[in-house]
Structure formats: structure tokens, C-alpha cells
Simulated assay, not measured.
Amino acid sequence: MKTYLTLAIGLVGVAGLTSCTKEYYSPPPSKTFIYNISTADWDWDEGVVNQIYYDIDLPELTDYYVDQGVVSVSISVDNETSYNILPATIMGTAYSVNYTTGFVTIYAEDPIFDPDFEVPIPDRAIKVKITLSEADYIP
């Protein structure tokens, strides 16, 4: 009887161990784009002196990324030695980002929103890194 009990427990154990499957998940792919903003590329809206902006045409930024993907934007003011993830305040200027399908806009503005303060155009080229990542949308 003990032999049958041992055999039954052994078979259940083997069946239990062999039925487990290990699942591996690979991270969703990402795409990264680098842009340069020179000092001459910044624009102002008419009558607004406390904010400048730069528009980036990015056709790869589809509705998918706007609706459920991940859009990460960072800038480097030191020739890619380091990056600051936006929003960030760098050397007294507040940088932020807005994006929609096909476009990314980088803003540089006075951090205290003083309408009489004119935001200086950055004195060096700025590198922009935009990363588009796929994500599993869970409502």
C-alpha cells in the first residue's frame, strides 16, 4: 500500500512540475529621435515676450503614442554630456513640452510668468531627445 501511495504522490509531483511553463516577456520596442535647436530656431507668439517655443515635425508620433504609448522628451544644454527630462528649469529658464499627433513643441519660459520679463534666447544649441515607447494599455 505504501508503494502505491508513494508512486501516486510521485506521479502527482512530476505532473505538477512538468505542467508549469515559464513565460518570458520582452520589453516593447522604443524609437529615439535626436534634434538640434540652434539659437536662431526659436519663435515667439505675437505679443508674448515671456515664452519662446520650437516646433518639431515628428510624423512617427502617431495616434497610438498619443493615446496609449509613452512619449519622453529630454534636452541637453551641454552637448549631450547630460540630459534633463522635461519639464525642467535650467539656468533660470523653465522648459516644458507639449505633443500631439505628428508634432512636439518645446517651450522655454519665465518660471514666474512675469509678462514684463523677456525670456532670453538660449545662448547655445540645445539637443532634444524624443523617445517613443510602446506600452500595454490597461484601462
Rank of each mutant, 00 (worst) to 15 (best):
V48P: 02
Q51R: 09
Y95T: 04
V66N: 02
W44H: 14
D114P: 11
V119Q: 01
W44P: 00
L61E: 03
P27Q: 13
K31R: 12
E80Y: 00
P139L: 04
I56N: 00
S19D: 12
V97M: 09
F113E: 07
V71L: 09
T62L: 05
D63Y: 01
P28F: 15
L61C: 01
E23T: 14
V49W: 01
I75A: 10
T32I: 04
P122S: 08
G13Y: 13
P59S: 11
D67F: 08
T3H: 01
I52A: 00
G102Y: 11
G16W: 12
Y64G: 06
D57K: 00
D110F: 06
P29I: 10
P120Q: 11
E23A: 10
D63R: 01
A40C: 01
L86K: 06
E134I: 02
E134D: 14
E46K: 09
I75T: 08
S30I: 07
A88P: 09
A135H: 10
D45Y: 12
G102P: 12
T101F: 08
E60D: 14
T21P: 08
L86D: 09
W44N: 13
D114C: 03
L86C: 09
V71E: 00
V48Q: 06
V73E: 08
D114Y: 06
S82C: 08
L17M: 15
N84G: 06
N50Q: 10
Y24S: 06
A108K: 00
N50A: 00
A125G: 11
T101K: 15
P122G: 08
I56S: 02
L5F: 10
I85L: 12
V48C: 00
E80F: 00
V73D: 03
N36V: 15
L58V: 03
Y35G: 02
T105A: 04
E46N: 07
P122T: 13
K2V: 07
Y24Q: 12
M1K: 08
L86T: 13
D114R: 05
P120L: 10
I138M: 14
C20M: 15
T6L: 13
A108W: 00
E23Y: 14
V48I: 14
Y25P: 02
D78R: 15
Y99E: 03
G92A: 09
T18V: 14
P28C: 04
E80P: 09
I34N: 05
I75Y: 05
G16N: 01
Y35S: 05
P59K: 07
S82W: 04
T32R: 14
Q68S: 05
G102F: 00
Y137W: 15
N36M: 06
F117H: 08
Q51V: 03
I52V: 01
P122E: 03
T93K: 02
E134A: 08
D63L: 06
L132R: 04
T81Y: 13
